[in-house]
């Protein structure tokens, strides 16, 4: 496990600066929550981390080394919408197997099959056939398949981009429980992006608050949410529904 570190990372689209000189560290074995509103640049930062967009300036390093530009990445991402992040024509087993690195365990068909089984077991889908298509699964089950696919790449860090916001509340809890369980069992490092403070509070031990491309406050979850220093963090906290019931 190694540390994911952003140093002065900026991403610009034309004249628009989506991410503005962000410095952030995801220590090994911790979940760092990244909160902010739509347009604050959190998803762009996630996409820059996994190489889907190029940072305009700054460096992203993992364990001190820059991220590889080609081939297998030591980072994996779980996307927001489990209905579009799985290929509808591909069995869930093949989707998971596709993300596996090539080595002795995955060299044979049998080895891959066993690894898929193990991963499905890990995300509590042991009774689901690896031959099932995503269309057969519920949103929560699909999101668990997406998590299994991310784990298949044996990443050092997982980027989770709003992974519960497309799910019904009854399913959201199961996915959050799973994230926590995986983190505790496997010691995963995770950058957990969400606009929902209550959700972030539940899974993350550190929180960074992002606004207009900048990180305005960062610290342990208890401190940031308990004694917020930046007015924007306070504004976000005040807006959490259920805080001022009638």
């Amino acid at each position: 496990m190694s540390e994911l570190r952003f140093e002065d990372v900026s991403v610009r689209y034309g004249r628009h600066t989506a991410v503005d000189a962000v410095s952030l560290t995801v220590p090994p074995g911790t979940v760092v929550g990244l909160v902010g509103e739509s347009g604050s640049g959190k998803s762009t930062l996630a996409r820059a981390t996994v190489g889907l967009v190029e940072p305009t300036s700054g460096t992203i390093t993992l364990g001190g080394a820059p991220l590889p530009r080609r081939g297998r990445r030591p980072l994996q991402m779980v996307f927001q919408d489990p209905y579009s992040s799985l290929d509808p024509r591909m069995s869930i087993g093949s989707s998971i197997a596709e993300a596996m690195p090539r080595d002795e365990t995955t060299a044979t068909r049998q080895g891959r099959r066993e690894e898929v089984r193990r991963l499905l077991e890990l995300v509590h889908l042991g009774s689901t056939s690896p031959d099932a298509r995503p269309g057969k699964l519920s949103g929560g089950q699909r999101q668990r398949v997406a998590l299994a696919r991310a784990l298949a790449g044996r990443p050092d860090v997982i980027i989770a981009d709003e992974i519960t916001s497309a799910l019904d509340v009854s399913i959201q809890g199961a996915v959050l429980n799973l994230v926590r369980e995986l983190q505790q069992e496997l010691g995963l490092s995770m950058l957990f992006i969400s606009h929902n403070l209550a959700v972030v509070r539940y899974v993350a031990s550190r929180v960074a608050v992002m606004r207009a491309g900048r990180i305005v406050e960062e610290g342990t979850t208890a401190t940031v949410l308990g004694q917020p220093e930046h007015p924007y963090t306070r504004e976000l906290l005040d807006a959490v529904p259920g805080r001022n019931p009638r």
Binding site: V169, G173, A174, A198, Y202
Partner: peptide
């Protein structure tokens, strides 16, 4: 099932098994 700012973070969230 919905975590709020007072949810006990040391316990797993309540969930509803199955699907609608």
């Amino acid at each position: 099932a919905v975590p709020d700012m007072a949810t006990d973070v040391s316990e797993p969230l309540a969930t509803i098994p199955g699907r609608p």
